[in-house]
């Protein structure tokens, strides 16, 4: 009856895994123990059975493409390794173009950015419609006019000048009121000769003047 240690030793002896002292021990055991011989014989038979099985499996297995698959797998591993190495060694990210930067900025939020742009355009249109300085309030616009009488440079001492300012109407009247005595004389002249300019009123004509004579009534 063999001990488990002896059986293990025999198995290793069968597999040529024993050291020289162990071999001597096994050979001594084989000489004195028929059970050891029998066990070793059974190990030989068993290994033959395994070999036959492996051979039959191998015979049925196709190794076509195996090497190319292996090479592909090796290439993939190599590429990943080099990419990792390159990423580790890569310097700081190079300057990106403006468009690439903009694309990154707008990526993922295109709708929001388009909405913002449309709003900005609408605001700009409002600014165009309004003149600077005006407020965007709804109110009734009343057109206003302005008349300023800045000076009366020369006046006939025989007449009176009166400025009537009509602020509500945005207008003004420049009254030239002849004195009573001069007024009577003017009435006579106006009726007798309405066309010809009066000597005292006639001013030196210049070639630059645009003169329009009024049609007789």
């Amino acid at each position: 009856m063999l001990t488990p240690q002896q059986l293990e030793l025999l198995q290793r002896y069968h597999d040529n895994e024993c050291s020289p002292p162990e071999q001597a021990e096994v050979e001594a055991l084989l000489e004195r123990s028929p059970d050891a011989l029998d066990a070793l014989a059974r190990l030989d038979n068993l290994s033959e059975l395994y070999q036959l099985h492996d051979q039959s499996v191998l015979a049925r297995t196709s190794f076509d493409g195996l090497w190319s698959n292996v090479q592909h797998a090796i290439a993939q591993d190599a590429a990943q390794a080099s990419a990792a190495a390159a990423a580790a060694k890569a310097p700081a990210e190079p300057q990106r173009g403006l468009f690439a930067w903009l694309a990154d900025l707008f990526a993922g939020h295109r709708t929001a950015w388009l909405t913002a742009a449309a709003t900005a355009a609408a605001v700009a249109l409002v600014f165009i419609a309004l003149k600077p300085g005006e407020h965007a309030t709804v109110e009734t616009v009343v057109e206003k006019h302005y008349i300023y009488i800045d000076s009366v440079n020369k006046a006939d001492p025989q007449s009176t000048v009166v400025i009537n300012s009509l602020q509500d109407e945005g207008s003004a009247v420049i009254w030239l009121l002849p004195n009573a005595a001069d007024g009577e004389e003017q009435d006579q002249r106006s009726g007798a000769n309405p066309q010809a300019p009066h000597a005292e009123d006639e001013e030196a004509e210049s070639d630059d003047d645009v003169i329009i004579e009024m049609e007789p009534l």
Binding site: H145, Y148, S151, K154, G170, A172, L177, Q186, G191
Partner: peptide
């Protein structure tokens, strides 16, 4: 004529008058 000479500032769309000369 020679009787009146004034300086006026007026805005676009406004109207002002000179009046007083008697006429029939």
């Amino acid at each position: 004529g020679k009787r009146l000479d004034t300086d006026v500032r007026a805005s676009n769309g406004s109207t002002f008058f000179q009046a007083g000369l008697p006429y029939k």
